[in-house]
Every structure is written in structure tokens, then in C-alpha cells.
């Protein structure tokens, strides 16, 4: 409240009258184009061809060309496998699982964290030490890594990228080029073990269930 009654009205009216003469904020679109930065490319999205398949061939050229490394191609499905794919967040397996958990009110695990940090990267450092941290020997490094782990874990690849300063995209491209390098454990059993290690509660429950039934894990009754 001001001392003079009605002063607020007058000040409001003065404000709108000042606005009346000020330059306007509207941009008349078809006639006036907004000032867009020269590198602006609009919304990033993957296109589909006329058969409905993704045109993207996962060549990683976009990820390599991106100057600020904002483009990354990857995600995990419901079985915890890392896949290079790109789509709406809800189409990723782990997003579905996560949102289901969140709706049920339970705590949400972070499989990406487990996946990348779960491997012990000490051996990778040793391997890199033997190759003198030289990215020119990328193929021998990757072969040695696979010889140690049995496959190429994403965490190890990230570690190689981090230590040698090579783009992750380059390492992934090299690894995916050679047929004898693989990103998953060679057998399904190994993969199932890896998953049950990642979910101790579930594994313990299954073990106790099996013990209470026939003594065999999982039971067959």
C-alpha cells in the first residue's frame, strides 16, 4: 500500500503506456527469420528407409565428427547386453525395466554404472603398460584385453579410451571391424552368471528357492 491511494494504478498505467511505445518482441516468422548459429542442425534424429529399417549403419562417423562428443550410440536391453542403437528413451530395455521399477516404488538400480564400473580395469592398465600406452597398437591391445576377459567389456574399452586419449568411437569401430573380437561373453552360461552376479538379491532368492525345493538351483518341480 502506498501513501497516496491510487498511486499503484497510475504506476501500472504508466508502465503499460511505456510498453506501448517500446520495440516489440514478436518475430514475424515467414518474413523475418530468427538469427540461428551457423552450426545449428536442428533436431538430431535417425531416419528410416522406405522398408522401415533404420538407415543408420552404425559407422560412428557422426560420433567421430561431433566436435563436443555429444553424440554417443549405445544402450542396454533387458538382458543387460550393450547394444548400439538409438531411439526414444522408452524403447531402451533398461528404460522399460527402470520405469516399471519406479512405478512399483522400489529402488532403481543403475545397470549402466554396474556395467561400466563392474569390471576390474587393473589388468587393462597392465596391458596398456606393456604396449607403452600407444594407440597405434590398438589391435594388439584389444586382443590382449579379450584374452584376459574373454570378451571386450565396455568398461575396459572406456578405460583404454580414457588412458590413451583415443576416441571411444575409434576403439569401438576397430573392435567391431574384426570378427574375432566380441563385446559379449562367449557363452550364454557366462552371460547368465554375469547377470546373476549383478543381481545378488534375485540370485539369493533363486538359490534359496531351489534349496527349499529339490536342492538343485532353480528347482524343477
Amino acid at each position: 500500500m502506498s501513501l497516496v491511494p491510487g498511486l499503484g494504478l497510475v504506476r501500472g498505467m504508466a508502465l503499460t503506456l511505456r510498453r506501448f511505445f517500446e520495440p516489440k518482441a514478436t518475430i514475424r516468422y515467414p518474413e523475418v527469420q530468427a538469427d540461428i548459429p551457423p552450426k545449428f542442425r536442428g533436431r538430431l534424429q535417425l531416419l528410416y528407409d522406405e522398408y522401415g529399417t533404420l538407415k543408420c549403419e552404425t559407422c560412428f562417423q557422426c560420433a567421430q565428427a561431433c566436435p563436443i562428443e555429444c553424440i554417443d550410440m549405445g544402450g542396454m536391453d533387458t538382458k543387460g547386453r550393450f547394444h548400439v542403437h538409438w531411439g526414444a528413451a522408452e524403447t531402451y530395455g533398461e528404460r522399460r525395466e527402470e520405469s516399471a521399477l519406479r512405478r512399483s516404488g522400489r529402488t532403481v538400480p543403475d545397470p549402466a554404472y554396474d556395467h561400466f564400473e563392474g569390471v576390474d580395469v587393473g589388468p587393462v592398465d597392465d596391458i596398456l603398460e606393456t604396449f607403452d600406452h600407444d594407440p597405434a597398437h590398438l589391435l594388439p591391445i584389444l586382443e590382449a584385453t579379450q584374452a584376459h576377459y574373454g570378451y571386450l567389456p565396455v568398461g575396459a574399452l572406456k578405460r583404454i579410451s580414457q588412458v590413451t586419449g583415443t576416441w571411444y568411437a575409434q576403439i569401438y569401430g576397430t573392435a567391431s571391424f574384426y570378427g574375432h573380437l566380441r563385446f559379449e561373453p562367449p557363452t550364454v552360461t557366462a552371460q547368465a552368471t554375469a547377470i546373476s552376479e549383478r543381481r545378488p538379491d534375485e540370485a539369493a532368492f533363486l538359490a534359496s528357492l531351489g534349496a527349499s525345493l529339490t536342492g538343485r538351483p532353480g528347482g524343477d518341480a
Partner: peptide
């Protein structure tokens, strides 16, 4: 028009 101009819009044009 007047209210548009007071709202820093262009209004009917």
C-alpha cells in the same frame, strides 16, 4: 491492437 502493443506483441497485422 492496443493491448497487443502494450504486451510487447505486434497484434493483428
Amino acid at each position: 491492437k492496443v493491448i497487443a502493443l502494450m504486451n510487447l506483441r505486434v497484434g493483428p497485422d
